[in-house]
Amino acid sequence: MTTPGFLERLSNGGSVIVAEGYLFEFERRGYLKAGSFVPEVVIDHPHLVRNLYEEFVHAGSDVVLAFTYYGHREKMRLIGKEHLLEKLNVDALKIARDVADRTGTLMAGNICNTTIYETGNLEAQEKTKGIFKEQIEWAVQYGADFIVAETFSDYGEADLALQCIKQYGNGLPSVVMIAPQTTNTTHDGLSYAEACRKLELSGADIVGLNCHRGPRTMLPLLREIRKACKCPIAALPVPYRTTTENPTMQSLKDPDTGKRSFPSDLTAQLCSRTQIEEFAKEAKEIGVQYVGLCCGNSSHFQRIVAEVYGRKPPSSKFSPDMSQHYVFGNKSNFSLYNQKGLLETVSQNNAE
Rank of each mutant, 00 (worst) to 15 (best):
G21N: 01
P255N: 05
L88D: 02
D321W: 00
E82H: 10
V57Y: 04
K230Y: 08
S319F: 00
C211G: 02
L78R: 12
E200I: 08
S174Q: 06
G296T: 01
E285C: 05
A19K: 00
R28M: 04
E200F: 06
E54W: 06
E126N: 01
S36P: 14
Q348F: 12
D62F: 09
C271I: 03
D62M: 08
G341R: 15
L252H: 05
S272L: 04
A280M: 06
R77S: 12
R102E: 11
H72D: 10
L7W: 04
Q348E: 12
N51E: 13
S36V: 13
E82F: 10
L162T: 07
L52Y: 08
G109R: 00
K198M: 14
R77A: 10
S272Q: 04
S15T: 15
N246L: 14
S153L: 15
N246S: 13
S15H: 12
K166E: 08
V140G: 04
T128C: 12
R73V: 10
T105G: 01
T185K: 15
A92T: 00
E200V: 06
L199D: 08
Y168P: 07
L78K: 14
I43E: 06
V64T: 01
G35I: 05
C112T: 09
A158W: 15
N297H: 02
P46H: 15
S191V: 08
S316D: 11
H187K: 12
G208V: 02
K312V: 09
E352K: 15
G214A: 07
F152G: 01
G5S: 14
E194H: 14
E86W: 13
G30S: 04
C164T: 02
S335P: 15
G5W: 07
V238G: 06
Y309W: 13
A234I: 09
K81I: 07
Q135H: 03
L85I: 03
E282T: 06
S261F: 01
A34Q: 06
N113A: 14
V57Q: 03
F24L: 07
R273L: 14
S323W: 03
E282G: 03
N338M: 15
D205S: 04
P4R: 10
E277N: 14
E126G: 00
K198I: 09
I178K: 04
H187T: 11
E8S: 12
G143C: 02
K87V: 07
V57T: 04
D101Y: 07
A66E: 00
A351I: 06
V291R: 10
L160Q: 12
G287A: 01
E277D: 14
H83N: 12
F132M: 02
S202R: 15
F146V: 03
D321P: 01
F301M: 13
C295V: 01
